[in-house]
């Protein structure tokens, strides 16, 4: 059981000419193995600041981020171990893969660096991982990212993230740049892999509908504050905060739209 804990995390940025900006304001939550929390909010809400703190691109201004009770290490072996435990999947699968390297290279690297398997089993493990994300190893292993479709690239990124057998996965808008018809597939794949490895998943998104169906809990961020945090269905179906309600009502919902006796073309 692995637990990631945010305790009263505050992040301030200095803005030239405008003093300070609160990117995160006393954010607290706990993510454990097997659990999915969706982090929902508009651009500028602080979602990506949380991802940056977890990948250590940013430091917290105050508060604690604890992995199994200890703060995120900042250097050396403990940092390596942290990075092995907490892995990222990014929004843009093209930008996150190096165009100069083959798929084999991308997945081998974490395997060798983190010594996940003995060197003579690396090849086998790469095959296993690619198969696991439903890519044909024979057809993809020696290709480069640009030779794959967006969905295939994101699968590679997922396989790479899983290579070092992490306990927690931070998925920052993992499907928003993919074609709509494959988004569901990729999310379902993530869900499957999650239940297999008992992963904790932090799903960062602006899409309320996928947040609801993909997660156990939803946390709504607004101007750096958690305005609502609850079970996924409850947050969406019976929002308690005005902002959540506004977000929900602004999101397209054809089911409700056609259930009500409105004329087609009317929007409100």
């Amino acid at each position: 059981m692995t637990t990631l804990e945010f305790k009263n995390v505050t992040k301030k940025y200095r803005v030239r000419g405008a003093g300070e900006m609160l990117a995160l304001d006393k954010v607290s939550f706990t993510l454990t193995s097997g659990q999915t929390i969706a982090l929902v909010g508009q651009s500028g809400s602080g979602k990506s600041t949380i991802a940056k703190i977890l990948t250590q691109l940013e430091r917290v201004s105050s508060g604690d981020v604890l992995l199994d009770g200890t703060p995120i290490p900042t250097w050396g072996r403990p940092l390596r171990r942290y990075r092995q435990t907490v892995r990222m999947v990014f929004q843009d699968p093209f930008a996150s893969l190096n165009p100069a390297h083959t798929i084999r290279h991308h997945i081998e690297r974490p395997l060798r660096l983190d010594k996940v398997v003995p060197p003579d089993q690396v090849e086998e493990e790469v095959f296993r991982l690619l198969t696991r994300v439903r890519l044909s190893p024979e057809q993809t292993i020696d290709r480069r990212p640009h030779e794959l479709s967006g969905g295939q690239r994101q699968r590679v990124a997922i396989a790479r993230a899983l290579a070092s057998r992490p306990k927690l996965l931070i998925a920052d808008e993992p499907v928003s740049m993919l074609d709509v018809s494959i988004r569901l597939e990729v999310l379902n794949l993530l869900a499957e892999l999650q239940s297999e490895a008992n992963l904790g998943v932090l799903y960062i998104t602006h899409d309320l509908a996928t947040a609801r169906h993909f997660s156990d809990e939803i946390m709504v961020l607004h101007h750096g504050k958690v305005v609502e945090h609850g079970k996924a269905d409850e947050v969406i179906l019976t929002p308690k905060h005005d902002y959540t309600l506004a977000l929900r009502n602004a999101s397209p919902d054809p089911e409700k739209h056609f259930a009500a006796p409105t004329t087609p073309g009317a929007t409100s």
């Binding site: 454990t32 379902n188 509908a209 919902d253």
Partner: peptide
């Protein structure tokens, strides 16, 4: 996926 309706094609079931 439907915002307020059924989960449709989603395989995931609520966890802990």
């Amino acid at each position: 996926p439907s915002l307020t309706g059924e989960r449709g094609g989603f395989v995931r079931r609520p966890g802990p």
